[in-house]
């Protein structure tokens, strides 16, 4: 009886979480795939999925933070590309030591995040336009800089380890470890710090938050800087992983990160969202990619599926309201 009650309560708690839907989705895909493919459930494949998903997980966690704060950042993929390029170039062309190059790369990332915040907050340009423009700007810079020739000859053993090309103890890789610390750190910060609360308050209702004494501007700055920083981290890991940095590195990752975050329960109007959900969303997208690989499906399906998933998630988020259309109109006030 007691056990049953506990189970029921746990289930109710779990279903109330923003990440419940995506968790269910991941579980179902796992179960189905383990029957559908003999290879899927092998430890090699699972480790592979985890290894691949680490990059997107970091970006998705960053995107979830931005969305929770009521913003959006479409420039993360481009920033990742540029920062990877900066690190690679410094090592290959100037002989900067690896960690020096990483530091400079991260400084660039933070700088671009700050620039986003400046444009959005002080020029009052809508966040998605500002970061979309930043995407074009940064990606263009990278193209000009590389002149179509990828950066090569910068890779070292350490950098490859960082990129996850070698497994550490227990088969895990460096990006997984880094992603783990970032995710756990982000969850703890959101749960237990003043910033976490102010973030959600700002995203939910900036006017009331300001009246309550929350420094809304500082919070907004922080989210774009954090987002830029995490994009920079991903850029460096990708540079280590790919051993060449092409001008298209990280292309389209912002869409995947956004898809992962909203699959994980984030909404574009801010205030709601979950790091864990976004991470599971990233996992789900990687699994879809893995399935496409396993079955030899045409890779183009992936883009299409991500787009369709976005449409379905947005639609289903509104479905209860739509079913009730006659009773409650989704109109403005009045």
């Amino acid at each position: 009886m007691n056990a049953l009650g506990f189970a029921r309560r746990s289930a109710r708690w779990a279903f109330a979480q923003p990440w419940s839907g995506i968790a269910l989705f991941v579980i179902v895909v796992f179960v189905v795939m383990s029957f559908a493919s003999p290879v899927f459930l092998t430890s090699i494949n699972l480790l592979n999925i985890l290894n691949q998903s680490a990059f997107l997980m970091i970006l998705a966690a960053g995107m979830a933070i931005v969305l929770m704060g009521g913003g959006i950042d479409l420039s993360v993929g481009a920033i990742a590309g540029l920062v990877g390029g900066v690190a690679a170039w410094l090592i290959a062309e100037t002989g900067t030591p690896l960690y020096g190059a990483i530091l400079v790369g991260l400084v660039v990332a933070v700088g671009l995040g700050t620039l986003n915040a400046l444009i959005i907050i002080h020029l009052r340009i809508p966040d998605f336009i500002a970061t979309l423009a930043m995407l074009g700007f940064v990606r263009g810079l990278l193209h000009i800089w590389t002149e179509g020739v990828p950066f090569i000859n910068y890779s070292s053993n350490d950098f490859r380890i960082l990129g996850g090309l070698f497994r550490l103890i227990g088969g895990i890789t460096a990006p997984e470890v880094i992603a783990f610390f970032i995710i756990v750190g982000a969850i703890l910060i959101l749960l237990f710090t003043k910033f976490g609360r102010h973030l959600r308050a700002t995203g939910d209702n900036p006017a009331i938050a300001r009246l309550s004494g929350v420094n809304v501007i500082r919070t907004k700055y922080t989210i774009y800087i954090v987002s830029g920083f995490l994009a920079g981290v991903v850029g460096i890991l990708l540079a280590g992983r790919l051993m060449t940095v092409q001008a298209n590195m990280g292309l389209g990752m912002e869409i995947k990160a956004l898809a992962a975050a909203i699959m994980g329960g984030a909404v574009l109007t801010g205030g709601r969202g979950s790091i864990l959900g976004a991470v599971l969303g990233a996992l789900a997208l990687t699994i879809i990619q893995n399935i496409i690989n396993l079955f030899g499906i045409e890779p183009a399906w992936e883009t299409l599926v991500v787009g369709a998933i976005i449409l379905i998630v947005v639609f289903s988020g509104k479905a209860p309201e739509l079913l009730n259309l006659a009773r409650r109109e989704p109109r403005g006030p009045g």
Partner: peptide, 20 residues
């Protein structure tokens, strides 16, 4: 209402002047 919908009661009461 001047409460933030997505925060809990206590989070709302102390919003902007949290004890650390």
């Amino acid at each position: 209402q001047t409460l933030i919908d997505s925060l809990t009661a206590i989070e709302n009461v102390f919003l902007g002047r949290e004890h650390l």
